[in-house]
Simulated assay, not measured.
Amino acid sequence: MMSPIKLGVFGSAFDPPTLGHLDVLQQAATCHDCILLVPSAFHAFDKNPLPFGLRVQMLQCFIDEAETGCPLEVCDLEAELLEQNPGRPVYTYDLMAALTSQYRDKATLSFIRGPDNARPDTWNRFYKSQEIEETWPIFTATERVAIRSSEVRNILESEKIADDLQQGLNMLLPSVQAFIINNNLYQTGNP
């Protein structure tokens, strides 16, 4: 019998996926056989990201190009969980419980946490944060690349000069840049 794989779970709005996300994944790849990237379907902290389908497509561009040292997979389970409880945020605890059930006997799961979510003021806002810590191992990345999706969006949404726009795009993998430009995302007046 094969031993279970070490499966990391990295959730985020991925709005858009940035080089900061890539750095977290590169750090976590050293401890995992595979990492699931889980875009939020209904964010618990009242974020209002691009539509789920667009973020999944961006994430697919991202993982097609990302070099981390272990396989990455997009997991859209949050959308299924949202369908089961419409209008209610999909909490990390509920996601991890559903994945644990789904991967029973096939994988040992751990939660991958970026430096932003590791800050106590943010982590303590997570639904059942204590239970998450007690139930699943947590891999916490250190901040080596200080890039936030919100910063990228602000640059792309502003009507700044081309040099600033290029600076914002340089915070992304080229395939994600191309997807954003080709779909005219984040620019003023667009989705």
Rank of each mutant, 00 (worst) to 15 (best):
A79Y: 12
F111K: 01
R88E: 15
F62I: 00
A44K: 09
F42D: 09
E65Y: 09
P89F: 04
C75L: 02
F52T: 00
A44Y: 02
G53F: 08
G69K: 08
A66Y: 01
G53H: 07
Q57C: 14
R88Q: 11
A79T: 13
Q102T: 13
D76K: 06
R55C: 09
V56L: 08
E67N: 15
K47R: 07
R55H: 12
Y93K: 07
V74S: 05
L99F: 08
A44M: 15
T108W: 12
L54E: 10
N48W: 12
Y93M: 06
A41L: 02
F62Q: 05
L95C: 03
N48D: 07
F42R: 03
C61E: 12
K106M: 10
E83H: 08
L54R: 13
E78Q: 01
P39Q: 05
S101M: 15
C75D: 12
H43Y: 04
Q60P: 03
N48V: 10
S40A: 12
L54K: 04
C70P: 00
P89Q: 06
G53S: 04
Q102N: 02
L50P: 05
I112L: 09
N48P: 15
A41C: 09
G53I: 13
E78W: 02
A97L: 11
E83I: 05
A41W: 03
T92S: 12
G53Y: 10
Y103F: 14
A79N: 10
E83R: 13
Q60W: 03
C61L: 11
T100Y: 09
P89N: 07
H43Q: 14
F111R: 01
L95T: 06
P39T: 00
F45E: 02
P51T: 06
V56T: 05
D94N: 13
T100G: 14
R55M: 11
T108R: 15
L50M: 13
I63A: 11
R88Y: 14
V38F: 10
P71Y: 12
Q84D: 13
C75M: 02
L95I: 05
M96V: 00
V90P: 00
T92W: 01
T68C: 09
P51H: 11
A66N: 02
M58Y: 04
P39K: 04
A98D: 01
I63E: 14
T108P: 13
P51M: 08
Y91T: 10
E67C: 08
I112K: 07
L77P: 01
F45C: 00
I63H: 10
A97S: 04
C70Q: 02
A107T: 11
L95N: 00
R55P: 14
F52A: 04
V56H: 03
G53P: 04
A44F: 01
R104F: 04
M96C: 01
T68P: 08
P89S: 13
K47F: 11
